[in-house]
Computed example of a mutant assay.
Amino acid sequence: MKTVLKIAVAAAAVPTIFLAAALAASAQMTMPDACKSETSASGSMQMQDDEMHKGQMAEYQKALMGGMQEMHSAMMPGMMAQDPDVAFVCGMIAHHRGAISMSEVELKYGDDQQARSMAEKIIDAQKKEIEEMTTWVEEHAK
């Protein structure tokens, strides 16, 4: 019985260990200084939820944040699949959808032609890759 309990405890710890490893890896990712704002700490948002509702953010910022929240909500369950290949691809589908959402915000609010062109290219490329990954998941998920 002790062995079963140890296995159950270890299995329950896996998502926590995975999340801690992912957070450590993302903390090592460097960003250009211009990508860090005064409202961030080490490049990650430390904004209270109610600030968004108080109107302290511009409309484009609200749209970007909304897209990120949707992306993260979809990524986490997908990455918990039992098969590492399926977990990777499911996470990437959500990640690519987030890139499309951010690009659509750029097209709605941005005015720099080069940035808009990047957004259009991202949308085209990510949609094709989502189709490929969705087909792969449908064929390989057990």
Rank of each mutant, 00 (worst) to 15 (best):
H95F: 12
S117G: 04
Q61G: 06
L23T: 01
T135K: 15
R97H: 01
I123G: 01
M71C: 09
K54W: 09
S37G: 07
M76Q: 07
M57Q: 13
F88M: 15
S73F: 11
G66W: 03
M76Y: 14
S44H: 14
M65I: 13
A13S: 14
T134C: 00
A13D: 07
D111P: 04
E106R: 11
Q48R: 13
A141I: 01
A63Y: 02
Q28C: 00
E129M: 10
I123L: 03
M31C: 03
A115K: 09
Q46A: 09
K6N: 04
M79I: 08
I130E: 05
Q61E: 15
A10T: 14
D50G: 00
M68N: 08
I100F: 04
Q61T: 12
V4K: 14
G55K: 08
L107A: 05
A25H: 00
K6E: 08
M75D: 02
D112G: 12
K6R: 08
D83G: 07
P15A: 10
G110H: 14
G98P: 04
I93W: 06
M65F: 11
K121H: 03
G66R: 11
D83P: 12
A81S: 12
W136V: 10
E138N: 13
S37V: 02
M65P: 00
K62N: 13
A8V: 14
K36G: 00
P77C: 04
D83W: 14
A13Q: 04
A87P: 13
